[in-house]
């Protein structure tokens, strides 16, 4: 119980200390990604700049955000490939570009000029050409940056999971002595760093 109450009390105190305000965020993010699986013939690896759009609403320390990332085909293929639980056979994903939409809630602390956020949420995919992929995934995001009045720059990391069950298992693993290192590796190993430019109003 003490393990839960102490962090909870800290969060409440931070909430009380934070100025009472609400604001909307609009932003753009850049992520550099490289397809490491490409077998090239005398060529360099394929590298893409992933463009992201960001809309968020913050109230006290509570925070809700929608991010839409335009992903190249090989990343969509990785996200949509899975192993059939009934047959055990790997199911190949769609190799088309698409949008990964992240719908997150969490906390954001604004201690001017420092801004730190941690969110968790679900995500959906829009695939080029209207192809359907109905599985909902989950994600975990961490961000830290500087706010200069009406604009700010930050670095964020996103870990995307195939399902909410996967993410829950990882978060539960943080509380387990045996699984903590595995859970930390799952959370931090897959973090994709992004550079975010955000406007506040």
């Amino acid at each position: 119980m003490k393990k839960i109450l102490l962090p909870l009390a800290a969060v409440v105190l931070l909430a009380l200390a934070a100025p009472a305000f609400a604001e909307i965020e609009l932003g753009i993010s850049w992520t550099q990604s490289t397809d490491t699986n490409v077998q090239m013939v005398g060529q360099t690896q394929v590298s893409d700049t992933i463009l992201g759009f960001h809309v968020a609403y913050g109230w006290f320390i509570l925070y809700g955000a929608w991010d839409s990332l335009a992903l190249p085909g090989y990343m969509i293929e990785a996200l949509t490939s899975y192993v059939d639980p009934l047959t055990g056979e790997p199911i190949a994903g769609f190799r088309v570009p698409g949008f990964l939409n992240l719908y997150d809630v969490g906390i954001r602390l604004v201690l001017q000029p420092l801004v730190v956020s941690a969110t968790i949420g679900t995500n959906s995919l829009y695939l080029y050409g209207g192809k359907r992929f109905d599985k909902m995934g989950a994600n975990f995001r961490l961000g830290a940056g500087l706010k200069f009045g009406w604009w700010g720059l930050s670095i964020s990391g996103t870990s995307v999971f195939g399902s909410m069950d996967d993410l829950t298992a990882v978060l539960a693993g943080l509380g387990s002595t045996e699984k903590r290192s595995w859970a930390l590796e799952q959370l931090t190993g897959g973090l994709v760093p992004s550079l975010d430019l955000t406007f506040y109003f």
Binding site: D48, L51, A70, G73, P97, F99, Y128, G129, G130
Partner: peptide, 14 residues
């Protein structure tokens, strides 16, 4: 259109 946006961002794949 989302497809138009993807086509402009990833012309080689679309």
């Amino acid at each position: 259109s989302c497809d138009a946006m993807l086509e402009s961002l990833f012309p080689n794949e679309t």
